[in-house]
Design a protein around this nucleic acid. Structure first.
Lengths: 183, 183
DNA sequence: TCGAATTCGAGGGATACCCTCGACTTAGGA
DNA sequence: TCCTAAGTCGAGGGTATCCCTCGAATTCGA
């Protein structure tokens, strides 16, 4: 098997992954790898030694983001109150978007391919909140996807005030108008 | 003074402006001028003969879009019913965004520089709808800007279904919950 | 100490735009 | 009809941005 990396190599590899997270968050999925190498304090050739194909590094980072997001949805589904769980999911998702451009791009695309774990969870969150009578029953998972996508643009344009829009729009989802049962 | 253009030159000039409208609508403000020339059925050199500096052509197209948008706002302000006028403005704006990427970019930026005619009109639309008791009074012009920006991302992702999101979110703006006075 | 592993970064290759310019074409007045 | 000024063409030079490679230099660690 492949022997362990030399210590300096391991350090550089870790730095590259960390740098990639930051750079993708700031500049999106299309960020140049040179920027990642620079952020990691490493030459471009070193990046390619560790991650021979573009995408190797980026996929690694993206996979982790998806995992985190999925975990957020799972936690939300475990909340006692269905409405509170849904709001928690939406809010944390919007928050991640405000801080991470790559995540935004990813989240906006994710509603394309259905069948993913995250989409299953969103579906469950919506249904559960409807059964509890907290979420309007004329909305579906697609509306939650739109809600999240919509907020991402606001967060992009004004990273400080997205919560203002978020709070307002939440009122459109509530079954009980304005300050409903769980508000 | 400059004598009138030769007839073929005038035809090309018109074709260029029309092509620019289409191409910018499809590809956004950053669209390459080569694409415009191609669409107009004209060589790139001809484009530069008519519009020596990049921006000359683009600004012309953009100015017209702003004018159209402003006119939409004016008409909305002239509507008898304040709420109906506001909704008309929002809907037509969102519709324009769904069809025109350059307009979307423009509209998303426009809330930066205040003091523009369009922003004054939006301000008036909001105030008028509030005085009529139709628009929540805890929302302001900034929320309308967010509303429009938010919708633009939905329209981008799914040009067919933006109205679904639009209609739903409108409920968050209404003073009277769900199917209020003017709905 | 010494060799294998690792790092460095200049630079070749690709792509995408911008815009120019000199040869060619054409409208339209004399 | 002819002639010339106006207009058109499009290859190509300039710039920028990224991708990725490779041989020389460096460094770890047995």
């Amino acid at each position: 098997m492949n022997r362990p990396l030399r210590r300096d190599a391991q350090r550089n590899r870790d730095a590259l992954v960390e740098a990639a997270k930051q750079v993708l968050a700031e500049r999106g999925i299309e960020a140049p790898l040179e920027a990642v190498a620079k952020r990691a304090g490493v030459a471009i050739g070193t990046l390619y030694r560790h991650f021979p194909e573009r995408g190797d590094l980026i996929d690694a980072v993206l996979d982790e983001k998806v995992a985190t997001w999925t975990e957020v949805a799972r936690q939300a589904l475990a909340a006692d109150d269905a409405w509170a769980g849904l709001v928690e999911f939406l809010e944390r998702t919007c928050e991640m978007q405000a801080k991470d451009r790559a995540f935004t791009e990813l989240a906006c695309l994710s509603h394309q391919n259905d069948r993913t774990e995250i989409n299953r969870l969103i579906h469950q969150l919506a249904e559960r909140a409807q059964r509890a009578g907290a979420l309007r029953h004329d909305v579906g998972p697609v509306d939650l996807a739109f809600f999240v996508m919509a907020n991402s643009r606001v967060a992009e344009a004004d990273p400080e005030q997205w919560r203002r829009h978020f709070t307002l729009m939440l009122d459109a989802l509530r079954a009980e108008p304005r300050g409903g049962p769980a508000a």
